[in-house]
């Protein structure tokens, strides 16, 4: 009963009974909605309330004809790249210290502390930054306390505020993925390199970075994709400067009610993410 059976009678029925409900649910709530969205993106108007849309490529054409959307897409891609960059710069050393220099109970406790915010409410964490960044907020007062004077930070509702909030949101992902792959690097390997006279920088460059590349890349993907699709973070921290492709898509669904255009923009966004990853894969492949 417990060993994986092969071709046992009644097996097909059992498989269907076990996997059917879960996959039916996923079909109704994920696959069909995405397919419907793809269908809508080729219609002139949403086939709701008795209207019928006609087949058209106008929604996709709008993206290429109106420079506005392209500019925002580039702005979102830049935001994604910047957030990924800072997450790596801040997160990799942190993962390195955790994996290779702290041991035992301490490591466990610190690791838990780092990933504790990882699953807690993203919205609330973004909101908490408004306390820090707003005019006369904590950060400004802290600076004023250190350097008294008329120095004004004035960072709330700017592009930088959005970057700070997003880095805060996604940093634990990068630490987590880097930590997992760094932990798998054998200490003997590092010892061997050192005994042969390799400096720390060499060990980092020739052993630790290449061997943890899969973890770094996993972190990059896990951060880049949701950042490109973010809309709540730019709205709260970016204010009027927080217009990105994600907020424009949200507008199409909640304010403008041009669902076909929103659908087309969503798939263009997915396409752009795909192209970015294909290109970076090509670049990485060539180097190796």
């Amino acid at each position: 009963m417990t060993s994986p059976a092969k071709g046992a009678p009644g097996q097909a029925g059992a498989i269907l009974a076990l996997t059917g409900p879960a996959y039916l649910w996923l079909t109704v709530a994920i696959l069909l909605p995405l397919s419907a969205m793809f269908y809508f993106s080729f219609l002139s108007e949403a086939p709701l309330a008795g209207k019928t849309g006609e087949w058209t490529l106008a929604n996709y054409r709008a993206f290429f004809e109106q420079g506005f959307y392209g500019t925002l897409m580039l702005r979102s891609l830049r935001l994604g790249a910047e957030v990924v960059f800072w997450c790596f710069v801040l997160g990799f050393p942190c993962a390195l210290v955790l994996a290779k220099s702290v041991k035992g109970r301490w490591r466990e406790a610190l690791f838990l502390l780092v990933i504790l915010p990882f699953w807690s409410n993203a919205l609330v964490r973004i909101f908490s930054w408004t306390m820090m960044l707003r005019g006369n907020g904590i950060l400004e007062r802290a600076i004023d306390w250190v350097v008294p004077g008329r120095f004004r930070l004035d960072i709330m509702f700017t592009y930088e505020a959005v970057v700070i909030g997003l880095v805060h949101s996604y940093l634990p992902y990068m630490i987590l993925t880097c930590y997992i792959s760094l932990q798998a690097v054998q200490d003997d390997l590092i010892e061997a390199a050192r005994s042969m006279g390799a400096s720390r920088l060499t060990i980092l460059r020739r052993i630790l970075l290449p061997l943890s590349l899969p973890g770094i890349l996993a972190g990059v993907v896990l951060i880049f994709v949701p950042v490109i699709g973010s809309f709540m973070e730019p709205r709260i921290l970016g204010g009027r400067n927080g217009t990105f492709i994600g907020t424009v898509i949200e507008d199409q669904f909640t304010a403008v009610f041009n669902w076909p255009l929103g659908a087309a923009l969503s798939f263009i966004m997915l396409g752009c993410v795909g192209v970015v990853f294909a290109l970076s894969r090509l670049a990485l492949g060539r180097r190796g």
Binding site: P33, L34, A36, F231, F253, G262
Partner: peptide, 11 residues
């Protein structure tokens, strides 16, 4: 991205 999953569900 949840934005896409969410709007697709809405639609």
């Amino acid at each position: 991205p949840w934005l896409i999953t969410g709007t697709a569900m809405l639609l």
